[in-house]
Amino acid sequence: MVDPLLSVRDLKVHFSVGRGLLNPGQLVKAVDGVSFDIAPGEVVGLVGESGSGKTTLGRSVLRLIEPTSGSIKFNGTELVGLEAQRMKALRSDMQIIFQDPFASLNPRMSVREIIGEALFLHGIGSSADREDRITALLDRVGLPATAAPRFPHEFSGGQRQRIGIARALAVNPKFIVADEPVSALDVSIQAQIINLLQDLRREMGLSLLFIGHDLSVIEYLCDRVVVLYLGKVMETAKAADLYASPRHPYTRALLDAAPVTHPDARRERVALKGDPPSPINPPSGCVFRTRCPFAVEACAQTQPPLTAFGDDQHVACIRANELNLAEYNVQSAATG
């Protein structure tokens, strides 16, 4: 395998909440010991429920949120603890596309200023060159050059997301974190944006960390998938393997939760009950055990490590070996 572009090791992001004058507050472990790699040109999907730490992880990888501990190596440079000036220089290589295209563009700046600011900050081109580049970028994301002097509120959600993408592309990044870039958009627009990302990835050799909860989008776009639950990695595998043979009960439950396209289709499902436990007081042992239909007593004892299965599939479950989730039948689990 080639050297990874991005290599995250044992990353932890902890927040203290509810701290007041007298109250010492509590610790939320939003991301708790996550490791993964992204190869050049690879698209990695990050899935999990709301509150699983996906967004926090995506932002802390770019140090938009300061990690508590761990290591993030980008192109061989350690980002954690990197001084501000060098971090700023690196920002041109790593960009982010946000979920909400209505909130992520400064309402007081024109499209030209929004895209041009990044070029200016990284000293790309003269001001005349920049104007050409802005036009080219707008064209690349399917917007006319006449969009440049206009303000964000004059555009629809899909158009705004295109502006956000043009802005991210402006500095020629090698790596982009796409934080649920389509979940705020209409379904018809979603497809356009996803196809745009797919094209850009092919043409520019971009690496992507694609955060989402729409599993069909992830399957379409991603080479590899990381499944996150309560700030911990449950399973990571090549997309094809993960969808064909999930090995972690949580992955299987996520796949089962996706709607089926045909109304007559029937299948066995692993359904989860209740809400994820609070990340302030996570369960002992395996964090998923409180909702896992296969949990046994041993699950409460130790935190299962990520264990390798076959070709690049890693699962954090002590029963991964004995469960055959790909052909699992609900009925038998209920009785047995």
């Binding site: 932002r59 770019l62 938009l64 501000a84 700023k88 220089a89 920002r91 041109s92 960009q95 982010i96 946000f98 979920q99 909400d100 909130a103 992520s104 563009l105 400064n106 309402p107 007081r108 600011e117 990044a118 900050l121 990284h122 956000g164 802005r167 991210a168 500095v171």
Partner: peptide
């Protein structure tokens, strides 16, 4: 707390630049 402030950081603005040029105006 707005996303466009994060956008400004992602572009490579320093804190003073973000506060003065992006946040204060709004």
């Amino acid at each position: 707390n707005q996303d466009y402030i994060r956008t400004a950081y992602a572009k490579g603005r320093t804190e003073i630049g973000v506060v003065v040029l992006h946040a204060l105006r709004n």
